[in-house]
Amino acid sequence: MKIAFYGSSLLSSYWNGAATYYRGILRDLAGRGYDIIFYEPDAFGRQQHRDIDPPIWARSIVYPATIEATRAVLAEARQADIVVKASGVGVFDAELLDGIVEHARDDALKIFWDVDAAATLDEMRRDPSHPVRRTLPDLGMVLTYGGGPPVVDAYERFGAAACMPVYNALDPETHFPVAPDARFAADLAFLGNRLPDREARVETFFLEPAAALPERSFLIGGNGWETKPMPFNVRHRGHVYTAEHNAFNCTPLALLNVARDSMADIGFSPATRVFEAAGAAACLITDAWEGIELFLKPGEEVLVARDGRDVADHLAALTPERARAIGEAARVRILAEHRYALRGAQVDAIFKTHFARRREAA
């Protein structure tokens, strides 16, 4: 079957945290025989900060960020059996969503794949004319990056024919243990772009512990932090390319994961970084969120913090030996239960079930 996928970027993770998620799932689907075309706009400097070359397992089409070019690539949706519009493309999102409904064949499966469901649902509650809310009756299903039962229930109340979470996972061929790299040496490191609904939690869970532990070293990677006032013992690294993630994860004593405000409220939405860190056998300290035990066991496979004081306490008590034990336990768990091969199998089953039901109905 042919998939036309309209997303933010497959080639670049620059201001695009979903890149590794797309790569992991789509590469596995390609291995299962799907013919995939990924359409991404040339926007936000992503093409100037590519992490990968165009892959052999998907055809990559980069189009100008204009309405004329957007309409041209949407016309190609008619050739696909499955047409996907992902959230957060950042350029003509509403037109892309309306366009897949307009241009996809009647017998095609039309999907909205939400990689930021909490934010989308909040927007839909506030805006009855929201594009997703308006087009739900014309879509075959909604897939989400996570969210669990609260997100599924919310989408179904808005009228989605079906909503299923497809969680982040680990691609063990991309994220794995490597030798330490002095560029990323620190006691605690955090990687994430500066976003309005993340900044306050970074202040609480990262900058406050740094101020409380002046004798320890802290490292922050990601875009946007260069203008943020920080304690003297925090270094800012800037954008960290996907190829550098393993070294970034393996070098510090511990890594910090902080959910954005909206995702922390909903729970059941572990970030890509959680799986990347576990794949590298890193010791992860995470803020508390509902459902974490479904992915990692607190105290043995991950350290959980309710606030900045907990982060500081965990770090003060952490030895290199315990950090290695926690990281290796996390790696074993994630490899067994949360690889992208398993997510690909899940999505493949979802697609096949949909088309089998359609044939039965016909």
Rank of each mutant, 00 (worst) to 15 (best):
F218A: 09
G224M: 11
R237G: 00
R237A: 15
G238F: 11
G238A: 06
H239N: 13
Y241H: 14
T242E: 14
H245E: 00
N246W: 06
A247M: 05
C250K: 00
T251F: 08
P252C: 01
P252N: 01
L253H: 05
A254D: 10
L255V: 08
L255S: 10
V258T: 12
R260K: 13
R260V: 15
P270Y: 09
T272A: 13
A280M: 06
A280N: 13
C283W: 00
L284P: 02
L284D: 05
I285E: 00
T286V: 07
D287M: 08
W289K: 03
E290M: 12
E290D: 15
G291E: 05
E293W: 00
V302M: 09
A305E: 04
R306V: 08
R306N: 13
R309H: 10
D310I: 00
V311M: 01
V311G: 02
A312H: 02
T319V: 07
P320N: 02
R324C: 11
R324L: 14
I326N: 02
I326R: 04
A329C: 07
V332S: 00
V332Q: 12
Y340L: 02
G344D: 08
G344A: 06
G344N: 04
A345F: 04
Q346T: 14
V347A: 10
D348C: 09
F351G: 08
